[in-house]
């Protein structure tokens, strides 16, 4: 209702960023405690150093690989179990309680267990991401496939689509697409958190590990410089998916 015109909002935000960064820089210089509040210029210098040394690119690469692998496994498990839960009452009552319990348990609390059971190689880290991301995918698949698009199935049948499997892939999944994308968006947000948790917990690899090791030696400017790309990565992934989501207007 009180939505202001876009160019006005953007202008205000640009002025806001300029003021914010200036105030930060000036007060950090005056305060002169780089351990607590490094000036913006120092953070940018640290970011530049991380960029040209290749450390940031390498860490981001590892993190993105972990994220993609985790989301892929979570999608696969979420898809299979979600389909079962949606199509079978037995599966619903047998599986749903566990996933609901997993959903409310903070992923961080499960990390030490994963560490003990699977070690902290790549497998362990992928499992942490899967634990964080699988439930939103599963719930979206289950709710998307439960509401059966009867009219569409009728039409598909009369055009010769036969069998549950064929119906699933050609009709049900496509009709459920917007719900599935919303689930994927939620899952991606949680996956980024899971990735950070996995990497930070043992100071091992990726952007989370980078942040943790700079934190351990109290190089606050480098901590800020490494957090920034991680936040941007998270925002970029979620924005990308919601862009895609907005295109799915067919239901």
């Amino acid at each position: 209702m009180k939505r202001r015109p876009n160019h006005e909002v953007r202008r205000d935000q640009l002025i806001g960023v300029a003021v914010f960064l200036t105030v930060w820089e000036v007060s950090a210089q005056a305060f002169d405690k780089p351990l607590l509040l490094p000036p913006v210029s120092a953070i940018l210098a640290a970011l530049w150093e991380l960029l040209i040394s290749g450390a940031l690119i390498k860490a981001l690469g590892e993190s993105i690989l972990l994220l993609v692998a985790g989301l892929a496994v979570a999608s696969l498990i979420g898809f299979i179990c979600g389909t079962l839960i949606a199509r079978s009452k037995t599966a619903y009552w047998m599986l749903n309680p566990y996933f609901s319990a997993l959903f409310v348990t903070p992923t961080i609390a499960l990390v030490p267990l994963v560490l003990v059971w699977f070690g902290f190689g790549f497998t362990g880290r992928v499992i942490v991401v899967v634990l964080a991301a699988v439930v939103p995918i599963l719930f979206s698949v289950a709710s998307g496939l439960r509401d059966s698009p009867d009219d569409l199935i009728e039409v598909a049948r009369s055009f010769g689509v036969k069998g549950e499997i064929q119906l699933l892939f050609q009709v049900r999944l496509r009709a459920a697409m917007p719900v599935l994308m919303a689930g994927l968006r939620l899952a991606a947000g949680r996956a980024v958190v899971g990735m950070a948790v996995a990497e930070t917990y043992l100071r091992l690899g990726g952007i989370g590990g980078l942040i943790k090791s700079y934190g351990a030696v109290f190089q606050t400017d480098f901590v800020f410089a490494a957090i920034l790309p991680l936040s941007l990565l998270g925002i970029a992934i979620v924005t990308l998916i919601s862009r895609f989501e907005r295109r799915l207007h067919w239901t």
């Binding site: 205000d12 002025i15 607590l36 950070a196 948790v197 930070t200 936040s231």
Partner: peptide, 28 residues
């Protein structure tokens, strides 16, 4: 609304930053 529009991006950025990576800052 103007204040809200200006602050929104920061709040969103902080909110979508996983908290475990902010732990080193909280310690200092």
């Amino acid at each position: 609304p103007r204040l809200g529009d200006i602050l929104q991006p920061y709040l969103y950025a902080i909110f979508s930053t996983p908290r475990v990576v902010v732990v080193p800052l909280i310690i200092v």
